[in-house]
Design a protein around this nucleic acid. Structure first.
Lengths: 224, 224, 224, 224
DNA sequence: TATGAATGAGACTTCATTCAT
DNA sequence: TATGAATGAAGTCTCATTCAT
């Protein structure tokens, strides 16, 4: 059985590399752009980090700028699809939904390499205004909409006091984004002892938000 | 009587310009570094924005990098001196102190051009780790210490429930910093209608924090 | 009988292609070198025009430069062999011989793709001085010698007035070469209506030369 | 008298260089583009020949291509202005006018460095079709028009036989252009002894043309 | 034999820095 | 002190050439 002639459809090595190259380059480029910024990153560094030579990069991306755009597009979206679905079908209390939404935000986005894009777009928005607008539409606005939805549900169900949805959404997202920025900027310069555990911070943030949204006539809760 | 206050002789224009030069250059450099980043800003642009020629810049700063360092040093510190003093002498409720601290943070720092430094340091921390550490020590840590002090006072006076001071300080600062980052990055790309009023957001943030810190046995407040 | 002449088996297509490859590549290279020059032509373009891949070209020619040399060698010589023979055996008037020589020059060389070599060598002589000398020896000098021979015959037979053979040969060749240069350079940029018919121009040129060579005591001719 | 304070209006050295730079660069670029072609010429060579560094060239021309365009524009036109004027006012025989026109063509254009442009445009026409058209309009067509005018005058005055003006103009210009091409291509590769004196060739060419245009009923001339 | 992905030397271009004026 | 022309190191990008498949 399993004779040697079974082709098993494994493409030859060269070919397999070819398929992987753009992804490897995008990954390397994301990391370096996030770390040093677009202008301060040399294409040769990106290529080296992806394990190829300078010329190879230009086989897949016609210019440094197009590489940048591809990095942005590649790491955009996809993030919130399930987030939005889950919120719609959630059956528990809105307080728990807030907690869950924030934990997920961190585990599925904020703690991943893709989150570097957020820091990157903040840094480069003036140099790439088109991409900044694209990022706003594709990432920021959906994310805010998700948060507004969560709070809106709580208000409708009379779990939360009425508040300005847009502003509260910003306040919910801000510390999460801030943690991401921090992770990719000051954190590497900070002595380890001084960094709080991200998950603990996320949980506290959720708790603060839940308390901030609680109706004034709510019964005293059993604090977690 | 008070002859000191008599501006006896205004220095001749040329002289005044000479004295003012470094300041104008630092101002121009701050704005451009914040907008485009260090690497993407050309010294010629800085000089032009300051109204001098390229060569003149090098009369005052030996290199682009030194100019950057001067920009950081110039816009560091000084911010919180009075903040710290005020907290120490504050006599009202801790809730009001939280509100006041945040409003001040915005009016005296977050809304000023100097706040751009915060965005700048996030962007450039990997390229200037020494400055990043310096910025952390001189700006971030004092700022967090201030917030910790405010919350600590509230806990001691039994106005606030006990919480992790370091983490709460981060949550208090995060949305403020986020507003600053936003102001210097995405805001210029955002249609005007979609931007909330900063002061309203600061007030809501203070309110959410106050509620989040309120003791569980506190009497139902008269919401503002 | 003479089985050798029987084309017994046409070589299989693959084989025929293999044999034809170098020729197709040389043809493609000639056209592109003539059109754009050596440096501005990419080997990949040559390969593509010949219907093969970049790598295949290097199977037949070790470098771009060698390809160029092969193009020059391939399109050199051969041109004038019969021309020289015909002149030697010509029995008509020298005026007709001039006319015939020029018509042939055009039909058998100037109007063919190989004539592009003339434009090419003019363009590239400084970059390939060896080839320039080779081209001069193999193409230009024989061509001039042919023209000198024609005129010399006319003078010896007292049909033409005595003239400087070398200079007249140049004058005879110049407009022909010029037409070739034109054909491969400005002609593609010229609106069609403005281009005279090449053969008419050749005929007029021959006529002008014949008249220019006519002895002063010649009887008035019947103009063509 | 002549006090030291007389400004004499000599600009400082630096300034004078600045005025001269573009001209020096254009001259160097013309020579090198003519010799080696556009693609094979390195901007650094151009700069070096003009006695400046690479960077300086880009102070005056934004790209290699723009340098090329400037070279073409700079060496275009201006050539025939007086030629056209002189023909209009000429009072001698048309034969002498032909001779004069051709001698001038050589002394005032063909023998000058600017004539290299002719070889250059032939070489690069396919790579710069816009410039090729421009060159045709600004140089070639006026030149042909000039020659047509000369012949037309001769025909009207019954000094020349009727001929196709456009074609004859081409035949008149061709050997001149050919000499130019030769001068900038094969000539540097040719042993000195083999090169005829340009002026002698121009004179013989003029003579051949005059004879070619002579009316069949013209009296036998005293050949020069 | 034929392919085309990969390489890296070398070209064009930018821009921080110098220096004669 | 101020200027801006000049420099050249360093970056982006191209393309002839190689080589695993």
């Amino acid at each position: 059985m399993s004779p040697a002639s079974v082709p098993t459809d494994t493409p030859p090595k060269r070919e397999r590399r070819k398929q992987a190259r753009p992804g490897e380059l995008l990954e390397a480029a994301l990391a370096l752009f996030v770390e040093k910024g677009f202008a301060a990153t040399r294409v040769e560094e990106v290529a080296a980090r992806a394990g190829v030579s300078k010329g190879t990069l230009f086989l897949y991306f016609p210019s440094k700028e197009e590489l940048f755009k591809a990095v942005v597009r590649e790491n955009t979206g996809r993030v919130l699809a399930e987030g939005l679905r889950d919120v719609a079908g959630y059956t528990g209390s809105s307080a728990d939904l807030v907690r869950e939404a924030m934990r997920r935000w961190w585990t599925q986005y904020g703690g991943t390499p893709a989150a570097g894009l957020t820091k990157l777009m903040v840094s480069e928005s003036a140099n790439f205004p088109d991409l900044a607008r694209y990022f706003q539409q594709e990432v920021i606005q959906p994310c805010h909409a998700l948060m507004r939805g969560v709070v809106s549900r709580g208000i409708e169900r009379q779990e939360f006091r009425p508040v300005d949805l847009a502003m509260v959404a910003q306040l919910m997202v801000a510390p999460l984004v801030q943690m991401v920025s921090w992770r990719f900027s000051m954190a590497p310069c900070t002595p380890d002892g001084q960094m709080p555990d991200p998950m603990a911070l996320v949980n506290l943030h959720a708790e603060m938000i839940v308390r901030g949204l609680r109706r004034d006539d709510a019964p005293s809760p059993a604090a977690p």
